[in-house]
Design a binder for these strands. Sequence first.
DNA 1: ACAGTTCTGTGACTTTTGTCACTGTGATGG
DNA 2: CCATCACAGTGACAAAAGTCACAGAACTGT
Lengths: 212, 212
Amino acid sequence: MDDLETQLQRFFPRLEPALRAELLQEATLKDLPEGEFIIRTGQYLKSSILLLNGLLKVYRQDEEGHEFLLYFLEPGHACALSMLCAVREEQSEISAQAVTPAQVLLVPMHVAERWLTKYPSWHMFVIGTYRERFEELLQTLDAVAFTSLDERLLFYLRKNQQFKGNQLRISHQQIAMELNSSREVISRLLKKLEQRGVLTLHRNFIELHQPA
Amino acid sequence: MDDLETQLQRFFPRLEPALRAELLQEATLKDLPEGEFIIRTGQYLKSSILLLNGLLKVYRQDEEGHEFLLYFLEPGHACALSMLCAVREEQSEISAQAVTPAQVLLVPMHVAERWLTKYPSWHMFVIGTYRERFEELLQTLDAVAFTSLDERLLFYLRKNQQFKGNQLRISHQQIAMELNSSREVISRLLKKLEQRGVLTLHRNFIELHQPA
DNA sequence: ACAGTTCTGTGACTTTTGTCACTGTGATGG
DNA sequence: CCATCACAGTGACAAAAGTCACAGAACTGT
């Protein structure tokens, strides 16, 4: 693993050098083991989160514990929600979890706030972050509103493939949760996809074919 | 109707006076008759949109013409999407339409951009706009993901009630479109709601009871 | 090797939504 | 006064998804 400064430069090239220097000063580096939560529903946040390494998944939960995947976060991106919540000093309405071991930078809210006027590039970065998340959210909404479960399942698998490769170690139960469905249904749909030759089912993992 | 300056002050009190003055200079005022589009899917936008008067609805459309209501926009608010699209110089992926006669201010993109660094209050306003729309979008997503059609229908009616009063002049077809369902289903569900005493069905309009 | 656990497969059934086909009814405009 | 039209109601059926109940397969630790 590179040193922090190199990583910053690699993943956040658009932040001006002075800002990157101050980031090193002000932000806290945090390592997340796989599965660790960085945000939990109902939690108060006081920092913005920048992702340096690994993969985070951001999802919503309702009162009865149903989950719902919103989007993945890759290195070089930031969690728009963390900025939202931080600004409003409100409870977060979402959860974020490390899918792989991950490294994040935590920028205290008051610092992030100050940078908005101090560094134009920070400002653009924040705006850009909102924009990107907004668009991903729209995509997700489209998927839910306009497509059936089997299409969404395929989309979900492809997305995971993109980040984790062809061998997905996910249980049907997991998938069901994230798509807000039930295990049996997912099992059946996966079976259909297997028959169509899209994938092969194994115990504890799913093998996706043709990355296309 | 008040003069423009008074309206600005009333609906956008948080914008600094100098900015309000410049708004009067740089922005174009536009009157929208009921039903007029201000954004259409596929259109290129070159302005940010601030709403002065009336009610706009913002919705998504898929390729086959299905609609999907995202949220309403009230006076004093701005369309986050218009800012998104404007910045990216991309095609808009949504439509916005005047539900009642409305008045909007159009701020050319390059001006809006310039203000970001020039006026802190503009900057905060833009951030705030993203934040609010983001949260509304999350709400909508929740509704779709976690609740059944009849709940969504009720929610939809309440929302309309909030803006348009107890007598809703909407056809079942209209509702079906906006909830991405079909007329027959909506008819049936409305019937059920009537039996539960929530509303009374009339020709061409629906009467909602207990504003609660 | 065995009990316990997790993951997966499956049949039968229900509920929810969507679709089709048709009817009725009020409004509007020649 | 009648043709037309948009709107609404409804029964019958189909499709999609969720639920229930079980069974078997693989993995775990002791």
